[in-house]
């Protein structure tokens, strides 16, 4: 059943996937940037500052999705003790931390011209900050604990505890009065963003997701080689 995630099988197509993504990445990036910065219209209220949304929103989504993925894989890994999954969660964590921080920074750069403040301790922004702290704890657990089994166990538990924070972030804008506006794109697929602005948003999301896939594959490959190298005498 778990043969599909066997490193020796995966290794073969990691190489192919990396090459494939590299070949289409820059074309897609240029298309997405053209739409985001040139072709899409300014907002009726925010003017051109709406363009910050095209990096802010995908970053926030990726930050949330990465942590959800880490937490779910951690649950499986914790219950069935599958070591391979820990290699994957370890490879996702830096990407998630990067995009969570980017979401906070770009959000702050958007908040200054629109709200009139860089920072507000409202529920959405604070819970995003808590998410970045969970990422840091997860990464630190792997870095600081020498015993690999112990490190995996502690990191998995941190991810599982942090899972509670995800619905809090998602629904913070509905549960409490916040400075942050409610979600524009609902879970049922309806959106209050005009199609001419939704297109660049989705294109940027696609480009950033491809970037994440690229980093994830490279990191996972590094982890496999690291393990093989350590066990070279025993293979």
């Amino acid at each position: 059943m778990f043969d599909l995630i066997n490193p020796s099988r995966i290794f073969n197509w990691i190489e192919k996937l990396i090459n494939f993504i590299n070949s289409i990445f820059f074309i897609l990036l240029i298309i997405a940037l053209t739409f985001a910065l040139v072709l899409s219209p300014p907002d009726y209220l925010q003017g051109d500052s709406v363009r910050i949304m095209y990096v802010h929103v995908p970053s926030a989504w990726i930050g949330l999705a990465s942590f959800t993925a880490i937490a779910l894989l951690s649950i499986i890994s914790f219950i069935f003790k599958i070591k391979n999954l820990n290699l994957i969660t370890k490879s996702i964590a830096p990407i998630g931390l990067l995009f969570t921080c980017l979401a906070i920074i770009t959000g702050s750069l958007w908040g200054q011209p629109t709200w009139g403040t860089w920072w507000a301790w409202d529920a959405r922004i604070t819970s995003m900050l808590v998410l970045s702290i969970f990422y840091i704890l997860f990464i630190l657990a792997h870095k600081l604990i020498d015993n690999k089994d112990r490190a995996n166990k502690v990191a998995n538990l941190i991810a599982i505890i942090g899972l509670i924070n995800i619905p809090v972030i998602r629904y913070s804008v509905d549960w409490w009065n916040t400075l942050h506006q409610p979600s524009s794109i609902k879970l049922d697929g309806t959106s209050s963003i005009h199609p001419s602005m939704l297109l660049p948003l989705m294109l940027m999301l696609l480009v950033l997701l491809l970037y994440c896939a690229l980093i994830l594959l490279m990191k996972y490959k590094t982890e496999i080689i690291r393990i093989k190298k350590k066990n070279i005498k025993r293979i």
Partner: peptide, 22 residues
């Protein structure tokens, strides 16, 4: 960007710089 240039360009620059560094 009608006065928003600093914020727009800075946020795109930070995003791509950070991604490039990683």
């Amino acid at each position: 960007m009608n006065g928003y240039g600093f914020f727009v360009w800075l946020s795109f620059a930070i995003t791509f710089l950070a991604c490039g560094m990683l």
